[in-house]
Structures are given as C-alpha cells and as structure tokens.
Design a protein around this nucleic acid. Structure first.
Length: 828
DNA sequence: AGCACGCCGACT
DNA sequence: GTCGGCGTGCTC
C-alpha cells in the first residue's frame, strides 16, 4: 500500500496519512494534493515522512517510537482524491523552514505551510444544496427553518450553503435525511491560477486571403472583417481580444472569421504587473556616491556574503545614514555571484516609490510581495520567483517564505519593527525566521536598524551577530536638535488643558512663516480617550472588552479600539443618568483640531487608522505632503517610519510617554525606538532639523537617551532592567493566554496547565524553566471572552515549548482556547 | 478552522 | 412537546 503524509490547513492537526489509489502517480514532497477531511475536501501539501506510519498515532510519532507500531487505531486511511502537481509546488527548503516554524512557534505544520503558500494555491470543496422532487412536493407541508430553506431552493438551482445563515445547518442535515434536498460538494478553484486572455491570429488560409484580393472578394467579407484581417496581418504574434475590441472589432467579427478558418483564437497566459505602467519611468536611477563609512560597511558585508557560509550581521546605522544604498549594492553583488536575494521591509514601508527604486535597480529581475497586491498579482509574482525568473524579492513579513532559488542573502530592513511579528497563528517573527532561513541556506542575514531590537543588539554583543555600524548621516547632515518640554511646568503655567506647549506652538508658527514642514506625533488615535461621569465617577466602558471607549468626534461616536464596538456619544451617564459627562485624555483627532484652531491658515492633514481606510490612501496623502501641498502632518506611529521628507524641519511629539505606563516589558524599548525614529524624520534636507518632545517624565531613561539619540546608553540601561526582571533577551519567554466564558473558569483552566508544568520534573530535577501565574491578563476581557495568562521563562526554549505542548495535549479542551506566543512582542 | 452531534430554555 | 441555542469532539 502506498501511503503519503499530508499537511492539511487545519490549525490543530499534525500531518495526516493518506493512501494513494491505483492509477495515481507518487506525488513528490512539496506537491499539492486534494484530500478528504471530515466531510469536505481540502488542499494539503505532501511532507516528508515514509507514510507507513499507522494513522492516529501522531502522539506516538512525537514520543519515542511506541511499542506496537502496527496496532489498529480505529481510523481508516482515506484515499488521496487527486494529485495536483507532478513537480514540488513548495521547494524543499521552504518546506523545511515551515517545519521549523511549526516546531518553534508551537503551531500545526499545516498552518505554517498555509502561510508559505501563495494566494489561489488551494482548492477546497464548497457545499451546495439542491431541492429534490420530493422536496418540491412537500414544500407546503414544511414549516420554520426547514420551510425557509426549501423556499430558497425552490427555483431548483443549487445554492451555496455558506451563503445561508449558520443556524440553518442542523435543518439541512435533517432535510437531506428525509430526501427533500441533496447536498453536493463541487470543488472551488483551479490547479493553475494564471490569468489568460484570448489572442487572435491569422491562419495560413487567412494569410492567403489577405495576400490575394480575389480570394477576399470571393468570400464577400464585410468592412469590419477586412479591417480585422489587416490588423492581424500586421501582428504576426497575434492580437489580444481586448485590443481588438478597443479598435472597434467586436468578438462577433472574430468569431465569424474563425468559422471561415481565416483566424484562430488561442489563449495566452499573461502576467499581472503590480509595478504598473509607470515602471518604465523608473529607468536611469543614478546610485548615490557612498561615504567612506558606507563603503567600509559594504566591504565588510560583501566579505561575509562571499564566504558562502551562514552569518548574521547587524547593520546599526543612525537614521539617515544611507542603509538602503548599502542594501541595494550588496543585493546586486550577491546577485551577480549567482545567488538569490530576499529583502524584507516593514508593512508600511513598501510604498510604490520604494518598489520603483528596486525596479529601477534590478529591472525585471525583481519581484515584490506584500499585502497591498491583489491575490492575482501576488500569485503571479510568486510564480515568477518559483520559476527562477527573478533574483531579488522585496516584500513584507510573509515574503520570508518566498521560493527564492539558491538564496544567498536576506536583508531585514528596520528589523526592530513590530510589524515583523505576526499577531495571529502562526505567531512567527519575520526577522527570526529570516535568520533561520539564512542558516539553512548557508547564506548571509543582514539586520538593519537605527534602533536595533534588544534581542538583536544583545546577539551582536555576545558575538552571535557581526556588528557593522554607521555613525554619521550622509552628507554629514547633523541629527536633529532635540528639546524636552516638561509638561508638568506647562500645566502649572497654562492649566490642565494644554495640548501644544508654548515651545511647540512657537516652533510650529515659525515653520509656517518660513514655509517649512512639520510632523506632529501622538501615538493615540481618536478625539478623547475616555468619557468620565463626574457624578458617579464611572467611565464609559466597552460591553465586550475591559477597556474604556474612545471618543471619535467626527463620527460622533464612542468606539472600542479592540472589538470595534461603537455607540452614539451619550449625553447622560448610563449608570447614574447624571448629566455631567467629561471627556478626558486626547488623541490625534483632538491634536489636529487644536492645530487647525491655532493656525487657521495652515494646511493640516491627519494620518492614522481612522483617516487611512483604504490602502493607498496613505500613499496619496504622503505624496501630497512630499509635494509640499500640506504644511503639517499629524499622526500616530505610521508617520514615524522610514519616510524621507527633505522639507520637514520640525518634529513635535505630543505625549512621548504614551505607552510608558503600560505594564509591558517592552514599553521603554518601544518608546525609545519611536522617539528616535521620529526625531530622525527631521532635518533630512539642507536645513537642520529640530524636534520638540513633550513629556511628563523628562527623567525617564528611554526619553533622555532618545533625545540624545544615544542607542548604546539606552541599551545599557534597558539590558540591566531586563536582566533584573528576567525578561527577554535575558531569558526566553513564552506567553500563554487562556480564554473562557467566565473569569473564574479562565483562571482555573490556566491554573491547571500551570500546575502540570510545575509538576513536570526531569530525572528528579526541577524543570529548566519557571512558570509565572496564572493571573488575569492585562486585557482581562476581550470580545466578550475572559482571559487569564501565564508566562514560562527559562533559557532552554525547546524544553519550555515541549513541556507546554505536552501539558496542553493532555487537556485538549483547554488547548483549543489557549493562545501560545513564543517570543512575544507584547504580553498584553 | 469547519462541521456534526448532543444536551438545555422559549415557542407552536 | 419541537425548535434552536452553543458546548464538545473529531478530522488520516
């Protein structure tokens, strides 16, 4: 019997064993196969493993081989429905990377593989229902849910079940049992997702007719038909149907010529081009001259790349020191050595402008991969990479799985950026997966940042990574002057409602006079942070989450930023009916209003998740700002990242300490990074920049060091804190959150897992980790669920992960309600 | 993740 | 009494 191991796209499942029926060829590892799963059909990927493992023994497979490998398990091995690929769809190295991700981040192999697959790679069964003759006959005697369904199906056409309300499911099965309807499972999707167009071309006979007037006359062709033949005669490679239509030749005309045998219509595969038509304008980019420091850095990195062995370099360069130029040249160097390059950028950074830079440098040897592309575009780009048509891939987080051939270099730009961590399963960190991939490929990983993550600098210090530094900005431009404004003094002088300090207001005014630009940052959106009742001292809370509702004034609503619940702004207190409601705290919407109020002549725009609904809206807005059509940009951290605006000479930070109050071990690190990055936005042109930082805690080390742009000093203070508190990178950390319908149940369930973890001992020794908790999670209620959490801290990640996996496997009903986050970015 | 089975409150 | 809510378990 021929068996295969198949990873299926179901979170909790390990690879499953299927039988290959006679007449079906052996699929190679990495090929897609259609397999039955429960009562549906899904697309799985063949993974290594002899396959002659008995089904139902996944647990046994993890443990040392159990005693009776051939024992019957109760589950019958099902047959593979269809083999979709004769060649591996996912290459071996990507598959191995997925296996590592599944193991390291404690998720199912199928889930890891699902993130590596391009869109449209999966075919799945859909469920349709159709009414039977008996159903028609009994239609009028049925009532309730059953009658509703029969009414919907009355026309006789099959209907998709998922279009039906979920509550109708039970009725469906009973209707089928009674023979009133039939259920079908047609497959949705195709094995190949390329876009094709119809192309018309002249046949031999057609050529004859064009060449000979007599033949044409004999056929009595109409004007349109003659015209079509002329057009086709001038295009030996054929003409797209859409182009013919555009030139006034309808498909009917082509159809008639085809029946006459003069024209043949074929399908041609075309590639969707995410670069668009303007990419031709991108030619002729002249590379900037490197500074001596850049040259040295590039030389060192090239040397590392040329060894052909795995290495990781941390490129620590102050903002504006020209890291991108180094990436481009290093990528080109590696490419000319015949090895592939992967360049990862944060979510927001891959604007069309950046994509164009790469297009201009690498022409058609570059592919891009990010979530802004349509499914079709992403699919086509992926296929180009898979075929080996490109040597350079630029993309966001998930591009780390791109099937680049002979990979030699992975660059992770702005490696500290939080968008590299996926906040849903699999909770992987793009940077860490990149380093592992480089290791598997014997390649070089380059992590670049002005404010490296604590983990990365720690690794550089310990010698695991090679540290390469850039201390100066290009063209010797100075870093911005940073002034701290103590808001306690402002409040004492001007009352508690001050938003813009005197210093910041004055600086803004000066910029407006001089026609320079300014960026104002506040990492909190909305108009006011909460609605407070002065009579009963209660705060307006979200009914589903344990947070207060944020006031959005333009929408006149109070909104939850976690579950998106919203309600009309109340006029009286919901608890005590008191009329004295006060809005406390403020966000970007309020700051914008304040600036507009103070400077009516200023052209102000706001950039946050509320103003940027569509993707592309941010690009348009940033372009307007770059073009000088706006004076002031107010926004959240979105505006702090990467962009290069030469005319910005002032950066204002409204409340630098937003986030410092959070009970999160990365709070100081995030604050330091944000302040340093945003200050780096100022003074990128000819004129020196200035940054004004408003804070209630001017003495806090993250604010002090950020103002002096002193990374090393910040790192020293922060690493001491992490060591003392035993937080990463001093230890490895796993955060587990258990959800339950009540607070008590969540605590009980979490407590049981914690007990199991503490009880595990290895050969009489206590386990090599410590378990903290359980405790109520900081967000104790989210979307209506209560949450308890616990931490595992230790130095041996593998032991920690395995212990947790074992404890959860023993309690499957708790496991399904538990989120496991290995190396969490935040423990909220 | 889906999907089905099975056990308890509000309507014909 | 059924209808229909969602807890629990399974998927080779």
């Amino acid at each position: 019997m021929r068996l295969v191991r198949v990873a299926v796209p179901v979170p909790a499942l390990d690879a499953l064993t299927y039988r290959l029926p006679a007449g079906v060829s052996d699929p190679p590892v990495g090929a897609r196969v259609l397999v039955p799963l429960g009562n549906r059909v899904v697309t799985g990927v063949v993974v290594p493993g002899s396959g002659d493992r008995d089904p139902g023994s996944d647990l046994a497979a993890r443990r040392p081989r159990s005693s009776d490998p051939g024992s019957p398990s109760g589950t019958v091995v099902k047959d593979v429905v269809e083999v979709l690929d004769t060649e591996p769809f996912l290459p071996e190295d990507v598959l191995a990377l997925c296996a590592w991700v599944a193991e390291y981040y404690a998720c199912g192999i199928g889930e890891a593989i699902a993130t590596a697959l391009p869109p449209r790679a999966r075919i799945a069964s859909e469920r349709h229902a159709q009414i039977t003759g008996l159903g028609h006959a009994r239609l009028l005697t049925e009532r309730g849910q059953r009658r509703e369904i029969l009414d919907l199906l009355e026309a006789g056409k099959p209907l998709r079940i998922d279009a039906l309300a979920a509550r109708a499911r039970a009725a469906l099965t009973s209707l089928e049992r009674d023979g009133l309807i039939t259920l079908m499972q047609p497959l949705k999707g195709r094995a190949s997702a390329f876009h094709t167009v119809r192309v018309a071309g002249l046949t031999a006979q057609g050529h004859e007719v064009v060449a000979s007037g007599e033949a044409a006359a004999a056929l009595r062709l109409g004007d349109r038909q003659r015209e079509a033949l002329q057009i086709l005669a001038g295009n030996p490679n054929g003409v797209d149907a859409s182009e013919l239509t555009a030139r006034g030749i309808s498909s009917a005309v082509i159809g008639r010529l085809a029946t006459l045998g003069l024209v043949s219509v074929s399908r041609r595969r075309i590639e969707r081009d995410p670069f668009g038509a303007e990419s031709f304008l991108a030619e002729g980019r002249s590379p900037a001259e490197l500074t001596g420091e850049q040259r040295d850095a590039l030389d060192r990195l090239q040397l590392l790349a040329d060894t052909g062995a795995f290495a990781t370099a941390l490129l620590h360069g102050v903002t504006g020191s020209g890291k991108t130029e180094i990436y481009l040249r290093l990528a080109n160097h590696v490419r000319t050595q015949g090895r592939g390059v992967l360049l990862l950028v944060p979510e927001i950074a891959l604007t069309p402008a950046t994509a164009m830079t790469f297009r201009a440098t690498f022409a058609d040897r570059v592919a891009i991969q990010h979530s802004g592309l349509s499914d079709g575009e992403r699919h086509d780009q992926w296929q180009r990479i898979r075929r080996g048509d490109v040597d350079v891939v630029v993309g966001t987080r998930s591009a780390v799985f791109a099937p680049v051939q002979r990979l030699g270099l992975i660059v992770v730009d702005e490696e500290h950026d939080g968008s590299y961590k996926q906040e849903e399963s699999p909770r992987y960190h793009g940077r860490d997966v990149a380093v592992m991939r480089a290791r598997m490929a014997d390649g070089l990983a380059v992590l670049g940042s002005a404010t490296p993550a604590m983990e990365s600098f720690h690794n550089a210090r310990s010698g695991r990574y090679t540290l390469v530094s850039l201390r100066k900005r290009v063209l010797d431009r100075p870093l911005a002057d940073v002034r701290i404004v103590n808001m306690r003094d402002e409040y004492a002088a001007a009352g508690p409602d001050v938003i813009l300090s005197g210093a910041l207001a004055g600086a803004l005014n000066a910029r407006l006079q001089q026609e320079e630009q300014a960026i104002v940052l506040l990492n909190r959106r909305g108009y006011a942070s909460a609605v407070f009742c002065r009579q009963c001292a209660s705060t307006l809370e979200c009914p589903n989450c344990s947070v207060s509702l944020t006031v959005h004034r333009a929408a006149r609503r109070a909104r939850c930023h976690y579950c998106n619940y919203s309600m009309a702004l109340p006029k009286t207190c919901a608890k005590c009916a008191g009329p004295y409601l006060e809005q406390i705290g403020f966000g970007t919407e309020r700051v914008e209003a304040d600036i507009v109020g103070k400077f009516p002549q200023a052209r102000v725009a706001r950039v946050d998740r509320d103003t940027i609904r569509r993707r592309g809206a941010i690009v348009a807005l940033l372009e307007r700002f770059a073009a000088g059509e706006l004076d002031v940009l107010v926004g959240t951290q979105m505006i702090a990242k990467g962009h290069d605006f030469p005319r910005v000479t002032l950066v204002g930070v409204i409340s630098a300490d937003v986030g410092l109050g959070l009970a999160d071990f990365r709070a100081a690190e995030r604050t330091f990074q944000l302040l340093t990055q945003v200050a780096g936005r100022a003074g990128r042109g000819e004129i020196r920049g200035e940054a004004i930082v408003q804070t209630l805690y001017p003495e806090h080390y993250s604010i002090r060091h950020a103002c002096r742009q002193d990374y090393a000093a910040f790192f020293e203070d922060e690493i001491n804190f992490r060591r003392a508190m035993r937080y990463p990178p001093a230890v490895a950390l796993i955060n587990a959150v258990v959800k339950a319908p009540t607070h008590a149940a969540a605590m009980d369930d979490a407590g049981e897992i914690v007990q199991a973890l503490r009880g595990r001992s290895i050969a009489g020794f206590s386990p090599p980790y410590r378990v903290l908790g359980p405790a109520q999670a900081p967000l104790s209620r989210l979307k209506g669920e209560h949450r308890a959490q616990f931490f595992i801290k230790g130095t041996q990640r593998t032991a920690m992960r395995q212990a947790l996996a074992a404890a959860l496997d023993a309690r499957p009903e708790i496991k399904r309600r538990t989120i496991v986050d290995v190396d969490p970015m935040s423990v909220l």
